[in-house]
Design a protein around this nucleic acid. Structure first.
Lengths: 144, 144
DNA sequence: CATATCGGTATCCTTTGGGAAACCACTATC
DNA sequence: GATAGTGGTTTCCCAAAGGATACCGATATG
């Protein structure tokens, strides 16, 4: 595993002497957790890569074809970060030539499925919402 | 409402002549939707802002205090984009002085609650996962 | 009189994200 | 002999994201 990078950045609520009285959503609620998650999953590629691995292990080039548009450099970089954070594992099979490198979603990575699912559902609904507004109005009413 | 910007960027699957045979996850699955959602919600501040509005309408400065660390410039910019996409509404009360501007989560914005919830849950669990590894092992086993 | 609040805007600046292309050694295939 | 595929790294470069600071006119508060 490569050397470590960031783990948590927004430790606002862990400060010994809070600078200001914590506001409603700040320390009580979802704000901090959401930002923690975003620190790890933010950027253009991390989630798409995880989606690409969700149907089973993939080799590098294979994965690059799956995640359309990503360059080898970015894929390599993102894979390293995801591995550091324990979301996937990298396995090198040295007996073949050239060596076969396989990336597998770790069990911890699979805990992201609910997040992926939610984003997937929303993104899908958003597309129809844009294409013909009013079609998704029922959904809104339910939530409104 | 300000003038329009992006709506959908990854229209890979809508191309008249697909450059390559669609791979498994690419057109069939979650990849496209997730990327659509990410286009809209990506960046450091959009989701935190929505969280900040999830407990009721907020005025500008109020919201800026809630979303700790955001500058007025960024908040202003992000609010515009979120309004363009119909996730929130901006209301100006002109009879007071100085004018009071209120931002309210639109019903369409509330359809993001499942996404927020998922991220919130995961981020929360991730924090404990880091603090004392092994505590969240049960969760992983359930998903693994 | 000085200071703070309101909702921003304008300007300048740095950092990061991310793309393009070349390149590596080796093998298999045409 | 040329080409493609394997798993990347390296270099160069640009655009976008985002931070810091100053400022606006009005009003209220000390």
């Amino acid at each position: 595993m490569p050397e470590g990078t960031t783990l948590i950045s927004s430790d606002l609520c862990a400060m010994p002497f809070p600078v200001h009285p914590p506001t409603h959503a700040e320390c009580t609620g979802a704000m901090r957790s959401v930002r923690d998650a975003l620190d790890l999953l933010g950027g253009k590629w991390k989630l798409p890569i995880i989606v690409g691995l969700s149907n089973g292990p993939q080799r590098f080039k294979q994965l690059q074809r799956e995640v359309v548009g990503i360059t080898a450099k970015m894929l390599s970089k993102e894979l390293k970060e995801l591995e550091i954070n324990g979301l996937l594992t990298r396995h090198v099979q040295a007996d073949t030539v050239p060596v076969a490198v396989t990336y597998t979603l770790a069990s911890y990575g699979k805990t992201l499925f609910p997040v992926i699912e939610a984003l997937h559902q929303w993104g899908q609904q958003h597309r129809t919402h844009i294409m013909h507004p009013g079609a998704a109005a029922m959904l809104e009413e339910a939530a409104g």
